[in-house]
Nucleic acid binder design. Structure first.
Lengths: 315, 315
DNA sequence: CTTTATCATAAGAATTACTTATAGTAGTCA
DNA sequence: TGACTACTATAAGTAATTCTTATGATAAAG
């Protein structure tokens, strides 16, 4: 095979000519001249030591050897072609499977998706919700191709992944406008349900009050722990207590008057949302398109934020 | 595949490098430089849009894409290699299946085969006997490859076959030396068993006497019909009657004193023995070797014949 | 017989694939 | 830690291959 490998392109040419039964037609299909086909076939026949075609008036018929070679090499070349197609980068047009933390999906992405569809009608998005932080299940799904993009809080371990930061935002308490009107100091917050994510160490009410020099345990407030920030925001919008929100995820609700920032104090740490995809993905062009759009929407939102929010520094 | 076909040789290189896990070792196997391998792999990776190898200290390991490509392309390349091996000419060394008329096999070929073995120890001959003339069964066996060479009387119909004449020889009556001593004229032959091949039109006793102007039916001689000339010669050597022999097939027996030419008159036609093989045989080199040796032996025999025989013209 | 369609061939131009020399990287050993 | 070894990556130039263009050869059609 070592001496034969250089003739592999000629075998492909042979298969096309065998199918066309005409060098001229094969030349058209392959976008080269008939003379090139003729020379390739002559070279191949010389190498193989026998004719593969014989002249039949105005066309070429296969010899017995030609028939044998075609019947055995056709499936083999198709297998190689199929293997390569599995590897090559996909075009921009096509499907993307996106997995996202529940709050980002429902509070940020879904309200904007119609604009993505207008801008990119040839990309369809399949959206799933997962966890807030990168889980081992998410990694596995990315590795196996079940998921193309995972959107969650930024993680340190980006092995085999490409990280694309979406935004970094301050975290502060939010309440319904009705409750918001009655809050005059941090201490008055203790009179309402204090809703937080379960198993949350840093972004907890205890830590928030502590950063203000207040020991919330003395007041023994009502507390509620929920699975996701999305659940918390739903309760708060309905007037039940207060919870924390990342600025970019609550900004739209505040602009609509469904929420207000309940206090100016923000946690001393911000939160970064990022998107992750396989470094060896074949859908890189499509993913890049999607993430570029998100970045654009983030900067549009940032422009709107300048007019409306009250924020504050963390100290 | 059209744009990819030119890279098929690189895929073969890739498979060798994947197996070696080393460009340097692959270069040795393929008898090109390491730099050529490196460039081919770079070109292939660029075409496929992703890496196939990654550096692992002093060797190269396959990426996931590389593993996938190797697992799918290896069997395909092997299939192509196998198809080509089925087509390419075989070397001189190997086996030949020879079919021959019985008399040629036993009276000419077998007594000489030891010399062929000495001259060509790397060619083994499998010898079968068939019929004196080319039969449809012989053609089928040649076509299917059961037989590589058929040796028989020359035929007119050489479709798909290559003809190689071995010799053309006169046909004359032979007897044992004892009977030969007592034959003084054609007529005295009528006193002995006249042995001939059954269903033989031209080379028959009736025609031989007719060519001499003798009507053998008046003498009502004893006649015996046999299946092959080889059978006839066996009987004649044992002293039973007379039969016809082609010069080259009986020459050795005459030289040994086992037979004598019983009369000088030869038939007006000679007999040609020829060898036939498939025009598209892959064993052409081997067959040619064998037939060249036969031709050599024929001419050696012809040189010996000048000293010994009495022959005569047919008219 | 002329024309048309198709493959075969020769010569030259363009492109590709290789080699040589050297740089870069990682592993080994004293 | 530095020197040495083993191996791949890269640039530049050379050699080989492959293609194109033009034309010849062959067979079929009208």
């Amino acid at each position: 095979m070592i001496k034969t490998a250089r003739y592999l392109p000629y075998i492909h040419t042979f298969l096309v000519a065998a199918q066309c039964k005409s060098y001229t037609q094969a030349a058209e299909k392959l976008c080269i001249t008939q003379a090139a086909i003729s020379q390739q076939m002559r070279t191949l026949e010389t190498h193989l030591g026998q004719p593969l075609f014989y002249r039949q008036g105005r066309s070429m018929a296969l010899t017995q050897a030609g028939e044998l070679l075609a019947s055995q090499c056709q499936p083999a070349i198709e297998q190689i072609s199929s293997a390569i197609a599995q590897l090559q980068p996909q075009p921009i047009a096509g499907e993307l499977r996106v997995s996202s933390s529940p709050s980002f999906a429902s509070r940020w992405l879904m309200p904007r998706m119609w604009r993505f569809s207008l801008a990119h009608p040839d990309i369809s998005i399949q959206l799933h919700t997962s966890s807030r932080r990168m889980s081992s299940e998410s990694r596995s799904q990315l590795g196996s191709g079940e998921i193309d993009v995972e959107i969650c809080l930024a993680t340190d371990d980006t092995r085999n992944l490409i990280e694309h930061n979406l935004f970094t935002g301050p975290v502060y308490p939010v309440a319904s406008p009705f409750i918001g009107k009655q809050i005059t100091s941090p201490e008055t917050l203790l009179n309402y349900w204090l809703i937080e994510r379960e198993n949350e160490r840093h972004f907890s009410w205890e830590n928030w009050f502590k950063q203000l020099g207040i020991d919330m345990c003395l007041a023994n407030p009502s507390q509620l722990q929920v699975i996701s920030l999305d659940n918390a925001l739903s309760a708060v919008c309905a007037g039940h207590g207060v919870c924390f929100g990342v600025h970019q995820l609550v900004q739209d609700l505040i602009a609509k008057g469904d929420l207000v920032q309940a206090h100016t104090h923000c946690f001393d740490q911000q939160l970064t949302f990022a998107a992750y995809y396989l470094s060896q993905t074949r859908k890189q062009a499509r993913i890049q398109c999607f993430l570029d759009w998100i970045s654009h929407e983030v900067s549009v939102q940032a422009g709107q934020a300048d007019d409306q929010t009250i924020l504050s520094s963390s100290v």
